[in-house]
Structure formats: structure tokens, C-alpha cells
Design a protein around this nucleic acid. Structure first.
Length: 198
DNA sequence: ATCCCGAGGG
DNA sequence: CCCTCTGGAT
């Protein structure tokens, strides 16, 4: 399988974690647009920990949900500085214990770090899986359970990345590009009129 | 179940 | 105008 380059641009674990927190209900394009200035201003967990959430607003306001995200980043950085020696924890339990970090965010961080097998379910993974008929669930935790039963554990991370990639590039929410879809033959929605397709 | 919450696309 | 974007906390 060809190596697939995935979107988020980060230089260290903390930049990765911050990027993933920022990516909630936001596009990767938007995240990569704000992170250079943000990372230049806040170099490490100590820098974020010393800041107030409002200090981050100017950098991330364009993303939406910026109050929550700023609060989460500062709180998480304080926990990382105080309880983890300034280093981002590399276990699911450690990550999920951080403020603003839930199962999906922890999973994406683990996949990027290669620290553990995980199959985080975001809007793309959920939509693609439902369209392909791999699950009929809406709840991300249940979708994840179905997918993890279908895919060998060693491939969860790669599968997650491929599903996201496919969802962004081809199996787009509004207007799926079925005509250039590489897995159209596998798709139950094949041939279904666009209006009903979902 | 609801709130947060701006930008880009159809 | 409405929907969607790699959610999490309450």
C-alpha cells in the first residue's frame, strides 16, 4: 500500500495535541492556517500554562468554538506541566484525563504517535462507514465497535486515516464524488439518486 | 439533549 | 440561506 500523507502539520507531541484539539468541528485547512503563529507564540506546555485562555483567542478565533478550545488547551497544558513533567502522555488513559480531550481526540493523537492501536471515529469515518454499509450506527462509540470488529487491529490507525482521507476527497458530505470513487463497486449507495444518497 | 461558534461551500 | 467541518463538557 502506498504511504498516505495525512494533513495535520506538527513538530512535536504538544503541537500535535493542540492541533487535534483545535480540529474539533473545524477543517484541517483552517487549523493549519492558525497554528504557525500560535506555535511561534507558545513554545511549550509551560508557555500555554502561563497564559489565560483569552490570550489564545486572537490566534484561533477564526476556527469557531474558540472559547472552549482555548480553555481546553490552557487547562490541558497546565495538567501536562504539573503532572507529566511537561510531556504529553502517550497512553489513552493519560490523554483522556486531560481537560478537553475525549476519546476521539486521544485516539487521533495515539494514531499519529504510533503509540497504540486506535480507530477514532469522527464525522468522516462515521459518514463513510454508514454509506458503505459497514455500520448502521450513529453513535461514534458504536461505529467504532463495528469497525474494530471488521478490521485487524494492526490496521486500525491506517484504516482511520484512509477513511478520513476518502471522506474528505471523495465521499464528501454534501456532494459525494461517486463518479471518481475507487470503491464504488463496494458501495450499497451506488446508483442511488443523489438526493437520497446520504 | 444542548451549548459552543467561525469559515467555506452549495 | 443552510449544511458541514477529524468534539467535549454539562
Amino acid at each position: 500500500m502506498p504511504e498516505v500523507k495525512i494533513a495535520l502539520e506538527f513538530g512535536d507531541d504538544l503541537q500535535l495535541l493542540v492541533s487535534v484539539i483545535l480540529s474539533a468541528q473545524s477543517t484541517d485547512v483552517g487549523v493549519n492556517k492558525v497554528t504557525p503563529a500560535l506555535f511561534a507564540r507558545f513554545a511549550d506546555a509551560t508557555a500555554y500554562a502561563a497564559a489565560r485562555p483569552e490570550d489564545l483567542w486572537p490566534y484561533i478565533r477564526s476556527l469557531g468554538l474558540y472559547r472552549n478550545k482555548a480553555k481546553a488547551i490552557v487547562a490541558a497544558a497546565r495538567a501536562i506541566a504539573a503532572e507529566h513533567g511537561g510531556r504529553v502522555p502517550r497512553t489513552r488513559e493519560g490523554l483522556e484525563a486531560l481537560p478537553g480531550v475525549g476519546r476521539k481526540t486521544a485516539g487521533v493523537v495515539l494514531v499519529h504517535l504510533g503509540a497504540a492501536h486506535a480507530f477514532p471515529v469522527d464525522t468522516h469515518v462515521g459518514r463513510v462507514s454508514r454509506r458503505l454499509g459497514l455500520t448502521s450506527e450513529e453513535d461514534p462509540d458504536r461505529v467504532e465497535r463495528d469497525l474494530e470488529a471488521l478490521v485487524p487491529e494492526e490496521r486500525w490507525g491506517k484504516a482511520h486515516q484512509l477513511f478520513v482521507w476518502h471522506g474528505r476527497r471523495t465521499c464528501i458530505a454534501r456532494a459525494p464524488a461517486c463518479s471518481r470513487c475507487p470503491v464504488e463497486d463496494l458501495c450499497p449507495k451506488r446508483g442511488v439518486p443523489k438526493v437520497i444518497r446520504r
